[in-house]
Amino acid sequence: MTEPFIHLSGVRKTYRRGGEAHLAISDATFDVMPGELVSLVGPSGCGKSTLLKVLAGLHPQDEGEVRIGSGTHAFDPARDVGMVFQAPLLLKWRRILQNVLLPAEILGLPMGEARERARALLGLVGLEGSEDKYPYELSGGMQQRAAIARALVHDPKLVLMDEPFGALDALTREKMNLELLRIWKESGKTILFVTHGISEAVFLGTRVVVMTAGPARMADNIAIELPYPRTLDMKTHHAFGEYTRRIYRLLGME
């Protein structure tokens, strides 16, 4: 059995807001295997985003163990994390290609190579021909594709996605889900995908980690035994319904 790429054990994190301590995560314990796409699902304020920040090395945990990387999959915290947020957050004054290149610039990678890679990635996310456009010339969905290309440009081993499709309309969102699965398969990255869409979490994930709010805690870690490539009609399958129902129950919505 291969070693996990991410190992979280008893991770606890509180943060202060206005002098008051809030428990953001209490006891997050789960493993992620290399190349997995794990969905983190839960209501707002359950600490999903905080967990991503802990993994990105932005905030250290208060207690518990966070180990990323393994013997076979080395991990450099400075350059092996790609991030995608709910808003595309492209720089308005840069053309798309220059936007995608931002992480490569910050890391000081050789730019010739990076530029080639950025062009290839724009192809991968379906944005060939938009290299020289400004962000405002693209739709919300296309901007988010560019943001995904930006998260991959420095070839990170881990991609952290924080509700990346939360701001898109339902149809675009479904389309982007299919696109993400394709990009994931082609790039072989390990992805942590935060969402509060239960059906989205099940549809994408190899596993779904369920978190509940008030108090923030991990409720379950469900392996999704649906085959890839996944198709939209799987959402009508009995097994799919079982998974979503189980998560709804965990979140106390049934």
Partner: peptide, 11 residues
């Protein structure tokens, strides 16, 4: 979040 993005890359 843009600050986070740069910080995560140790910019």
């Amino acid at each position: 979040e843009l600050l986070d993005l740069v910080r995560a890359l140790r910019g």
